[in-house]
Design a protein around this nucleic acid. Structure first.
Length: 576
DNA sequence: GCCGTTTTCGGCCCGACTGTTTTCAGTCG
């Protein structure tokens, strides 16, 4: 079973328990376990195989009871407890809770009283007036359900979550609209977009002004608003014309730090922070920090001061995922993350010689404008026919051209690289003789993605031992289109550290590969990384900020990233 | 059901908005 399948079962259990009216803490416990298991980088089945029940219990949110249920699922493919629950509360009806506005209780009422167990039946019931037969249901309720259904349908049609480059411009548009209003002192993007999470669900914004009610009305009239989902004194939620939900929260300037902190999340980070605070007789909300002993409320206009007040280091938004950052901040042991201006070069880009759109000169000029000191040219090798990959002979000719440009253009050094295919059998589609004449080679998997975990691991390990210096887009995933291939990461990390091969952090928003959690894992094995644009056009070089964000989310420091080093250091590293 | 620098028992983040109600449950972030 995959982690997602385990997570789904525990999520369903939590919904059913909520329907049953079980204690809310048990409901939360199952929900939390589902969330954590769903976002684990390691397979739960592997955790169990390697360490049994004890190892399962070490997963946060998993105690003896849930660990035993995982064991039962692995051993028998069934879970008696769950089957018992679904006899009374069929799995099928749980789909109703994916409609915004319908929670566990409403879903069950719909099922019990009206036998509704699908979205289409729900839609029919709302339109036909059947819903009015339920207690506490009037015209408005039916209307809201229909709206929820259309939101649900729009979302599934257009994909569940957006990549960063889709969300960014929409947030920018909304901020620009807010900034036009003179009553607004400041406004910012918060939520998962501020944390630079790889995919974004809703867009969250905050603003500060003494006139929050006025701003709620102002925002409700923005030209991009398709529908108003919710409107209060300090909050408004709208549906953007592109069917994306936008939430705005508005408070006075004196509480802006608290507001930023609260709305940036993540939920898990905030719950952990507030639980910790509660034990220290403090209560945290977006309105400040209340001292439970003296009842005094401390206000924070500045977010940094808020963490300082708690005796913690400032926690960068990219780290706020409840992955140990709170403990590290308390111990003053947070890493100093790589900065957005720390790169001295980019080591992965393509020219017209393979499948890029630009010449060497154009790329060099773009690199100069980005204040880079070096730029690695890495066109495809011949195995990748669709990308017009270069033969051994052509690579050497390309090398001569690059050297010519180096003599002509000042202020930047072009390095001679290549993006080499790692063949299905682990061989490289470049001769060793030619590889040795390059500054470095990037090894990438571009074919036979469906190999077994052991074959794929062997394949990449083989490439590592043949002298490549970087593994390109190491997992091969395309967000929303293709999961990464199966591979035994620990073996790869150990080999990369031993043979001094950097793991690429590819900056394409659909890739962001290696991903944040794997970066953090790899760091513990002593791996180095290389943040690359993989540019095929000049504009792609500006996507590098998303790669940097991903490195930051993976807790990487400047020194962990080889292309923050100067030319001399990086060259000597390539030679070893 | 989970968890522990007060605790192996007794807690569990905090608040806004909505609809249908006269005080709140349900839902959401």
């Amino acid at each position: 079973m995959t982690n997602q399948e385990f997570a789904q079962i525990f999520k369903n259990i939590s919904i059913i328990l909520e329907i049953k009216g079980d204690t809310k803490f048990r409901v939360i416990a199952y929900e939390r376990a589902a969330d954590i298991i769903g976002s684990l980088t390691k397979d739960v089945e592997d955790v169990y195989k390697e360490g049994g029940l004890k190892a399962l219990e070490e997963i946060p949110g998993v105690g003896i009871s849930i660990a035993e249920k995982i064991e039962e699922l692995i051993k028998t493919k069934h879970l008696k407890y769950y089957e018992c629950l679904t006899k009374q509360f069929p799995e099928k009806m749980l789909v109703l809770t994916s409609v915004p506005g319908i929670g566990a209780k409403t879903a069950f009422a719909l099922y019990k009283k009206l036998k509704i167990d699908s979205i289409s039946k729900l839609e029919h019931a709302a339109k036909s007036g059947l819903l009015l037969k339920l207690p506490h249901f009037k015209a408005k309720s039916a209307q809201n359900i229909l709206r929820g259904i259309s939101q649900f349908q729009a979302k599934t049609k257009e994909q569940e979550r957006m990549v960063l480059t889709t969300a960014g411009p929409l947030a920018e548009e909304a901020l620009n609209y807010l900034k036009k209003n003179k009553a607004i002192k400041r406004c910012d993007t918060v939520g998962s977009l501020r944390r630079m999470k790889e995919t974004i669900g809703d867009i969250d914004l905050v603003a500060c002004t003494p006139k929050s009610k006025e701003i709620v009305v102002y925002f409700s009239k923005a030209p991009f608003v398709k529908d108003i989902l919710m409107k209060g004194d300090t909050k408004i939620s709208i549906l953007h014309k592109k069917n994306i939900r936008m939430d705005v929260e508005i408070l006075p300037e004196t509480d802006y730090g608290s507001l930023l902190q609260h709305f940036t999340g993540s939920k898990e980070h905030n719950v952990h922070l507030r639980t910790w605070a509660e034990k220290n007789k403090l209560s945290i909300s977006e309105y400040g920090i209340k001292d439970l002993k003296t009842k005094k409320v401390h206000h924070f206009a500045d977010e940094k001061k808020l963490y300082e007040f708690l005796g913690m280091q400032y926690i960068e938004p990219e780290l706020r995922e409840d992955r140990g950052e709170i403990e590290a901040a308390l111990a003053h042991k947070l890493p100093k993350l790589i900065g957005y201006n720390d790169l001295q070069g980019d080591l992965h880009c393509h020219t017209k010689s393979s499948d890029g759109h630009n010449t060497l000169i154009e790329l060099a000029q773009k690199a100069i404008s980005k204040k880079y000191k070096y730029l690695g040219i890495s066109d495809h090798t011949h195995g990748l026919g669709v990308a017009h990959g270069l033969s051994n002979k052509e690579i050497l000719k390309h090398k001569t051209e690059i050297e010519k440009i180096n003599k002509k253009v000042g202020g930047i050094k072009l390095l001679v690289g290549a993006e080499i295919n790692i063949n299905a059998d682990g061989g490289l589609d470049i001769s060793q003789e030619v590889l040795q004449q390059l500054d470095y080679g990037i090894g990438s998997v571009h074919s036979a993605f469906n190999q077994s975990e052991s074959e794929m691991t062997k394949r990449i390990l083989s490439a590592i031992k043949q002298g490549i210096k970087i593994i390109g887009h190491p997992s091969g995933r395309l967000i929303g289109h293709r999961p990464g291939y199966a591979v035994q990461w620990i073996d790869i990390f150990k080999a990369c550290a031993k043979y001094k091969v950097a793991l690429e952090i590819n900056s394409f928003p659909e890739r962001l590969d290696l991903k944040d959690t794997l970066i953090k894992d790899a760091l513990s094995y002593g791996c180095k990384f290389c943040i690359d644009s993989d540019a095929h056009e000049l504009e792609h070089m500006d996507l590098i900020k998303y790669g940097i964000a991903t490195a930051r989310r993976g807790w990487a420091t400047k020194n962990d990233i080889i292309n923050t080093w100067d030319l001399e250091k990086i060259r000597s590293w390539f030679k070893n």
